[in-house]
Amino acid sequence: MHEWALAEAVVETVLKEAGKENLKEIVRVKVMVGELQQIELDVFNFAMENILQQGGGALSMEKISLEVDKCVLRCKVCGEDWYYSDSLQDLSEEDSEAIHFVPEVAHVYVRCPRCGSPDFEITSGRGVWIDYIEGEK
């Protein structure tokens, strides 16, 4: 996922949820990102700082922690489980950039290491979610 888009989405969501819950102060926010999204932490942090400067309300940089969820794939045809990081070595920079923008296109470039099928399930490490928002009312 594009880092700027993600940062913007996180800020919007945290402020909206904090508003809903009437939080006066935000203490901690945990953002989970699937490995498949291939977020570059430096870029994400830079984007986040930039967006917060333009009005982050009760949110500030040091309250946000981001954790990457390891990506595991499972072949629907032969049942093989494998790590996306193992497939990554065989991908060109272009292919891996395409996956960064739209993770589902992994199905275009990644194949089951055992049977070669593109029909696999992303069992973990996909998507973005806010694990929790801690705050004080």
């Binding site: 996922m1 594009h2 888009a5 989405a9 395409a98 996956i99 923008f101 739209v102 993770p103 589902e104 296109v105 199905h107 275009v108 470039y109 593109p118 029909d119 992303i122 996909r126 998507g127």
Partner: peptide
């Protein structure tokens, strides 16, 4: 992002890809 390659996606993945494209 796919070039001329086929993109064999199942329903929930199409959904996820739509969300991603709309969000970025």
């Amino acid at each position: 992002y796919t070039g001329n390659n086929p993109s064999p996606l199942r329903g929930s993945e199409i959904s996820n890809a739509i969300i991603e494209i709309l969000a970025i």
